[in-house]
Amino acid sequence: MTATTGQQTGRTTEPDRPRARRARGGSSWTSFALRRLGGLVGVVVVAVVVTFVIVPLIPGDPAVSAAGPDATVDQIARVRAELGLDRPMLERFLDYVGGLLQGDLGHSFSLNAPVSEVVLRRLPFTAGLAFLALLVVLAVAVPLGMAVGALTRGGRRRRLDSAFGYTTAFVAAIPPYVMATLLVLLFAVTLQVLPPAYTRSQPGLSMLLPALALSIPSICLIARVVRRETAVVLEQDYLRTARGWRLGTLRTAARYALPNLLTSTLTLSGIILVGMLGGAISVETVFGWPGLGLGVVNAVATKDYPLVQGIVLVLAVLSALMTMLVDVLLGIVDPRVRGGQHG
């Protein structure tokens, strides 16, 4: 999970070709937005195709598993017709897409309810958990990484540097569900101050442990990224320029280091945060948290494929949205990204 940044080359060789001077103003924003939207559409389209393909790819007859173990041949045939499994593939795909466009994600036979209903019921739990974890991560990791990066710049305070390095490596290496187990052991079993699992009566309180389990490893990962990027940014030419203008440490840090730091940090954080969404799958299981993660696990276990399709699709779109959000933030922070000069 070590995020590797592209190698910085010190030497800049001016490309010997007329530099396209970009028109200033609105057009760069429009084309930026269009490019990002295009990326989002690509991600969604692939997700739709892949989720559709899940069912035909699964070994065994989905109608058999849907109808249940005691079903008669007639019942199975009826279920098959109900699921449309007797029709040609293309027709079924068009139906699937058509349904999606109308917000119809299919019918969950294990819960005997529309998938969209199940998803809507579970979505707030996962979204809330991810959002809380995200807030905690960004609020802690960014200042922590910057502080350590600034304190250890140019090889200073090597002890702090290695203490930080080892501690974060250690904590980041703890898988979220192990972290969850450890937190349950400490807060629920030993100290008995927080509920060990989701309790309907105290949703807020029972959210604390899952959010912590999700965010602590990510905090360490992102703090490491921020620390390294801080070290890189502090060596840039424009920081030397700002120091030459004697603007003072705080002003230099806030106006010259921070914005440039955010560019690379956000890029890498986006990847880590999407990974966090994956972590929700296992953490929700530990705490019995009724979100989409637990939902997809149960659906796979009960072979409820329409439900698997629906939840996977929603989670994929959710992570695509998260990536796009990060990209848009990047565009706001760094004009070069908008101009498309940043690769």
């Binding site: 990326g39 999407v274 990974g275 992570s319």
Partner: peptide, 24 residues
């Protein structure tokens, strides 16, 4: 490159769950 870029944007564990569902 575009395809790789798209596939990377899904959470790895989610992809693994889907694959596990398919593979058994």
């Amino acid at each position: 490159l575009r395809i790789v870029e798209i596939t990377v944007s899904y959470p790895e564990l989610l992809v693994a769950v889907v694959l596990a569902a398919i593979l058994g």
